[in-house]
């Protein structure tokens, strides 16, 4: 379809200049809409994939409970928003306070999960930690199911419709723009954190060789805890923004989003921060274009076929490091 389109443009524009231009404009609009749709979807995945990839980069553990932290962030925000709205606060204060509490609460969960489920297994085979992660994911899901509800709950639209966005509202909404900007900002901040700060240096050291890092005086346990806390914070920010964009949450959202974000992280090269973002965008675009030009019935099929192809030609993912690990 893609390959054929330019040819068609030519034929059409040669035949009837007026109508042809119209058709080209429509086709281009549609392409742009799908592109932006894929970009938003990709940035949703990216906000979750960043946490996955950070944790993997440091301790080579696929933290399946990460999607659940995202879900808990959204639920915390919803509860805080409901309380604050009843108290009659203004919207901006509500967004800031709810976002802040959600981040703090999710960080506490991330920290605790690491201490309970992963730290005792630090020296166990990697499979044990993986199973512990899946168990934690199921536990948190069912905990929220029992403590809250199994129903979908409406999530208020926190991001107002900016007036300057109104002419483009049919293509991209204000919420989508905010998600895109946040994803980019979070990605840049994380890169700065890892490249230019002391704790970032310690993270890189731990990631390269945990024992050696310990020998040179790095508190490895603290570094891992910080990684989990930072990862959870990004998940919580994602939870609040995405829930507000989609408008509803239930206990299960973390699982599905988590799986897709995990795929995106693998696609981009797990362990790499820019890779997670790039992988998420590529996944988002694949799904969006597959739906738009072929059929949404096979959305997931195309996404996973693409993953398989990438992994055949670049086993470490698009931006993954190809050198061999010591473990």
């Amino acid at each position: 379809m893609h390959g054929l389109s330019p040819f068609f443009y030519k034929v059409i524009s040669l035949r009837a200049a007026g109508d042809g231009k119209e058709i080209i404009r429509h086709t281009m609009d549609y392409f742009l809409e799908l592109f932006l749709g894929g970009l938003t979807r990709g940035s949703i995945y990216a906000l979750i994939a960043l946490g996955y990839t950070m944790v993997y980069g440091i301790i080579e553990l696929i933290n399946f409970a990460h999607g659940e932290i995202y879900m808990i962030g959204a639920f915390t925000a919803l509860i805080v928003i409901s309380v604050l709205t009843m108290m009659g606060m203004n919207t901006i204060a509500i967004i800031v306070i709810a976002g802040f509490i959600a981040v703090v609460y999710s960080c506490a969960y991330g920290y605790t999960v690491e201490k309970i489920a992963y730290k005792p297994l630090r020296n166990a085979p990697r499979l044990s930690a993986l199973i512990s992660a899946i168990g934690m994911s199921l536990f948190l899901q069912n905990y929220v199911l029992l403590a809250q509800t199994s129903d979908f709950l409406p999530f208020p639209n926190l991001i107002p419709n900016f007036t300057f966005m109104e002419p483009y509202a049919h293509i991209i909404s204000s919420a989508e723009v905010v998600i895109l900007i946040t994803t980019t900002a979070v990605m840049i901040l994380l890169t700065i954190l890892i490249k230019f700060t002391r704790i970032g240096k310690a993270m890189r050291a731990t990631s390269q060789d945990r024992d050696m890092a310990r020998l040179v005086g790095i508190d490895v346990d603290r570094v891992i805890s910080v990684t989990f806390v930072v990862g959870s914070a990004t998940a919580a920010i994602g939870g609040v923004l995405i829930a507000s964009h989609i408008g509803m949450i239930n206990f299960y959202i973390g699982f599905i989003a988590g799986i897709k974000a995990f795929v995106a992280a693998v696609l981009g090269g797990i362990g790499s921060i820019p890779g997670a973002v790039l992988g998420s965008f590529v996944l988002g675009w694949t799904e969006s274009f597959a739906t738009g030009y072929i059929s949404s019935d096979y959305e997931d099929v195309f996404a996973f076929v693409f993953l398989v192809l990438i992994l055949i030609f670049r086993p470490a993912g698009i931006l993954g490091r190809t050198e061999k690990h010591s473990i």
Binding site: E33, L34, G37, R41, H245, A257, E287, S288, F289, G292
Partner: peptide, 9 residues
């Protein structure tokens, strides 16, 4: 997570 592509379609 979202249905924007189907909606565009």
């Amino acid at each position: 997570v979202d249905y924007s592509a189907v909606v565009q379609k």
